[in-house]
Design a binder for these strands. Structure first.
Lengths: 351, 351
DNA sequence: ACGAGGAGTGGGAGCGCTCCCACAGTACTC
DNA sequence: GAGTACTGTGGGAGCGCTCCCACTCCTCGT
């Protein structure tokens, strides 16, 4: 009953002893440093396998000051409003990319202001190497605050046209244009739109795309054909009623989300307008909802999972640069990366 | 330019110096130990505020061997199949409960066998204090393996009637019974069902509930009215076609998920059967899909978010017990907790 | 022949905490 | 008046890593 009782998990030290090398060598071998002889590497590998050694993450983080974890922040309010598959797809992309890089995902749903504060606190506790931010509102100060903390950040979507913080967005303007071009191509000329709340850039961009699309199709814009809602089904319903009242002659509707389109569809049915014969309908998101609607909804697809992947790739890149530059005082600081991914129209029976 | 340059974040030591007390006292004050005088507590609080001190998580984890983080594991394949809002709701519940306890959520989507292995690796790296497991299959060995690692586990759903590992499930048998009782109450007597894959307990339980419901309504069971699918829309479609062929006289269908119900609804329409006049339809999940279907789908609601909360509460409890017992060799080990939460029928126009 | 330089290595010195032991001070008891 | 029992407190000893310096061999060049 002597010596080191292997009560807990094995440590670096024990691996070193078994492999017959020093601690430093084991550390280097495990972290893939080139400064290790083949023999040493093999001896370490054997010892690791035999002991079932796994490096202790806390010790690593403490000594090396990197956590190999990344936070993804999702505002809870948004999570309810947005068509639900959105965030799952995003998470899927982020998770896939992180797994490849052998990093962990810390998911934070932020509900209240108090939780927001607490979240900033966590960041200060150095639990993560970087932050991904989903669906920020126009006036959200969080991105800047995190950046000021010295933590790399990448956002999904942007707060305005000229966003200073790194972001990955989908081509929302293109989405609006594509929808209108499609409707115009089907011979529609009284094309209405149900927009999202205008304090969100995504809503303004889609509306801008709608207007650009009209111009390109040579259709005179008419403000009575523009209604604003809040991305909810109920909002879509209200907006549709308003539109029917203001412009009963409309023959097409571009809704800035599938869920609002679903609301609108209900109102159209109640009003006795057939889809697509009387009114053509196009949404955005290409969600499950779109596929299951009757008739199935034509919708502009965003590459959500791909956005998740791209964000993550950018973030990991920033993290890597940061740790390299580090003492170099980060003079260059470089450009904040921006990516705008293309959208695609998925034509179904509603148009 | 002398003394300690406060280059990085402040440490415990600096707080102690400023407060004029020892390191131990600061640690005790911060962790809410009762063995601290009021004055000391206040001095520490002031110093913490002044310096903006936040404890370093890695150091804490290393010294105290607890991470204040919990992993939630979701098999990726399931995430695609299940009606999507399910996991978001679950995450929401887990996240809310963890936030209250000031713990972090590590989300892991497991795609491949390789990622599974890697995940077990992470567990061994002592990154989390416990594990939540979502939607386990009948023969999944993961729960037992984790338990054997000495980590507390709670599952969402169970693998069989007699599940040895702690779990939180919804009353799937009750769901089936309620659906059938409702349909029978509406005067239907040729009630069919579209079941999930029978290697999943949840599918067997709902099917069992269906049978129990028939018995209670005094309806003779008929195996030609039972079809098995895989929880997908396409599966629901195929199963519905099969049912119409085998039992053209059916007047109601209980689908074990909303998504399958949506598939079935399409087939019914193609076959010229009106819902609910000719065939009444009931699903399970009460998802967005159900609300948006035409007609809106009657569905059995599961308290998903509440399941997430309950799982988390149970897990945190286990973690607390574990750290308390610890040296006590955990002789009692106690009963593994189990919870079965009630479901509720939401009646809409499809029945 | 000898020194310069690189490859490979061992191990000390932390990283910032928690745990725990020792000890001072105060408040009792008999 | 000396013992006993607390409450508070300071600070040493780690936790298991990474970083880095110092050291030993080589292999070259001249």
């Amino acid at each position: 009953m002597s010596g080191r009782q292997s009560g807990g998990r094995p440590t670096l030290e024990e691996v070193a002893a078994l492999a017959g090398v020093g601690r430093g060598t084991v550390s280097r071998a495990i972290n893939g440093s080139p400064r290790v002889s083949r023999q040493a590497k093999e001896a370490v590998a054997r010892a690791v396998a035999e002991l079932g050694y796994v490096p202790n993450q806390a010790a690593r983080a403490l000594a090396g000051s990197r956590t190999d974890a990344v936070a993804l922040v999702i505002p809870e309010t948004e999570a309810r409003i947005f068509s639900e598959p959105y965030f799952l797809d995003l998470i899927r992309g982020v998770s896939a990319e992180l797994a490849e890089a052998d990093k962990q995902l810390l998911l934070t749903l932020v509900r209240t202001e108090a939780e927001r504060q607490r979240f900033e606190h966590y960041l200060a506790a150095q639990r993560v190497d970087g932050v991904l931010l989903a669906s920020v509102h126009g006036d959200d100060p969080l991105p800047d605050r995190i950046a000021r903390l010295g933590l790399p950040v990448v956002m999904n979507g942007r707060r305005s046209e000229a966003e200073p913080v790194a972001y990955v967005d989908s081509d929302n303007i293109g989405a609006g244009r594509a929808a209108v071009a499609h409707l115009a191509g089907r011979g529609r000329s009284r094309i209405a739109t149900i927009s999202g709340p205008l304090d969100m850039y995504v809503a303004r961009a889609r509306l801008g795309g709608y207007r650009a699309g009209l111009a390109e199709a040579g259709i005179k814009p008419d403000e009575s054909l523009v209604a604003t809602a809040d991305f909810t089904e109920e909002g879509g319903r209200l907006a549709m009623r308003e539109l029917l009242e203001r412009a009963p002659g409309l023959d097409a509707v571009f809704a800035a989300s599938d869920v609002m389109a679903a609301g609108a569809r209900g109102v159209l049915r109640e009003a006795g307008r057939r889809v697509p014969e009387d009114v053509a309908l196009v949404g955005v998101d290409d969600s499950t909802v779109a596929r299951l609607m009757d008739p199935p909804l034509t919708s502009v697809r965003q590459p959500i999972e791909e956005m998740g992947r791209t964000m993550t790739r950018l973030l990991l890149q920033k993290i890597a640069e940061e740790s390299r530059a580090d003492a170099a005082s980060r003079q260059g600081e470089g450009e904040e990366p921006r990516r705008v991914l293309p959208t695609a129209l998925v034509v179904r029976d509603s148009s």
